[in-house]
């Protein structure tokens, strides 16, 4: 019984916040900028509240971090190893570059 009241109250509070707080569209800008600069206190509070009521934005922010971390990991990997079987300079390009270098030395 008591839990029923609490869950209804939480639901009402979430609904209230969702109507009053900045929208997902506005928060998506803030979330992107959270990767660029330190947010203001006001932004941090409204983001925290928004993420409490909106799972879509929770995922959005998570995705921004996944994309960044994946790209940086990839960059570190390409920079570190030479064994990757992936893109090679084509024979044609290789020959052309050698020829150009030869005529310029």
């Amino acid at each position: 019984m008591a839990t029923g009241i609490i869950s209804r109250a939480t639901h009402a509070l979430r609904y209230f916040l969702l109507r009053r707080l900045p929208t997902c569209k506005q928060m998506s800008v803030v979330m992107s900028e959270s990767l660029e600069r330190r947010l203001t206190l006001r932004e941090r509070i409204s983001l925290r509240l928004h993420l409490w009521i909106c799972i879509w934005c929770v995922w959005y922010l998570e995705h921004l971090h996944i994309v960044r971390d994946t790209l940086r990991a990839r960059a570190a990997q390409t920079d570190a190893t030479d064994t990757a079987a992936e893109p090679h300079l084509s024979l044609e390009a290789r020959t052309r570059i050698k020829r150009t270098l030869g005529s310029n030395s």
Binding site: A75, L89, S90, A93, I97, L101, G102
Partner: peptide, 27 residues
């Protein structure tokens, strides 16, 4: 320079391709 192409060519190419996303530009 010819040895550079053999030793480092692929490596440099991959580095450039990942950032420029176009094989002709990377070459």
């Amino acid at each position: 320079p010819s040895a550079w192409v053999d030793e480092h060519g692929d490596y440099l190419y991959r580095y450039a391709l990942f950032r420029l996303r176009d094989s002709a530009l990377a070459e």
